[in-house]
Design a binder for these strands. Sequence first.
DNA 1: CGGAGTTAGTACGTGACGCGAACCAAATTA
DNA 2: TAATTTGGTTCGCGTCACGTACTAACTCCG
Lengths: 148, 148
Amino acid sequence: MTEDTVRRAPVDLGIVDGLAQLSFLVQAELGRVAADQGLSVIQLRLLGVLRDREPGMQELARHLGLDKSSMTGLVDRAERRGLVRRTRAPHDGRSVRVSLTDEGHEAARRLAEDAGRRVGALAAHLTDARRALLSSLASELVNGHTEL
Amino acid sequence: MTEDTVRRAPVDLGIVDGLAQLSFLVQAELGRVAADQGLSVIQLRLLGVLRDREPGMQELARHLGLDKSSMTGLVDRAERRGLVRRTRAPHDGRSVRVSLTDEGHEAARRLAEDAGRRVGALAAHLTDARRALLSSLASELVNGHTEL
DNA sequence: CGGAGTTAGTACGTGACGCGAACCAAATTA
DNA sequence: TAATTTGGTTCGCGTCACGTACTAACTCCG
């Protein structure tokens, strides 16, 4: 057995595997956070998006990278759980605005809190400086690829 | 309109949102890589794991964070596509060893190549130094939480 | 005005995915 | 040998995502 005797030097996975593995790690943690409230990751994400927005189905689908027909189902299920509500848009009889119910806001708050705790824990053993660096690098990537 | 006039200062999302958003970004890219070969992210991950291992179902399930019953289905589908094979383990008549077929190896190679290209592109606009830093930070998190 | 096209959303069928519970057979322990 | 544990599968269910087809509302243009 080598586990005890070899103090393994931290292996650099490279940028691709590093990002991929990290994403699995984070997604797993988000999955646990969501599961604690009986939700899925995509529902968690939906609630997160809706915290500060009240988009139409189309816009929501674009934001989440889903087909519009997938959105119908996603919102259906969230609505069935009382987290989300459909309202008719004022000046367009076709479109719908999706917003959080009170219960939805409450769930979103809990999720954000738990995610803060649990995802934060992933980075807990980093020094403050390195954590800040990671945060800045992650933001740089996200900002560079989310909104262009 | 503010988009043209305001050269938005890069917003730091904080460690939690930064990691979460980044994970969504990477997962989306991996989803595209897999979809190009008619596969899902979890199948991609399965092939990735099997590149250098030949584990049993249980071990595989643990590694992927799935229930063993979910593994049966996952391997079933991969097997049906000719990517994977079940072999009986030599000294234990219950257990099974899962390994890549030739076709599976070929698929895994293509996936790795594409992932390299497309996930790499996410970090393409970083300076070499910052990319190396990100790689090292990601590896540090992964190494700290994958194998303890 | 009125039809042709476009846009927003839904309905439906299909397949992948993941879980828990029940189950089986081989292996281990008592 | 009997009881238990271990490795896997089966089954039923709900979620998720997609593509296709469809309806209703809006826009354009003649």
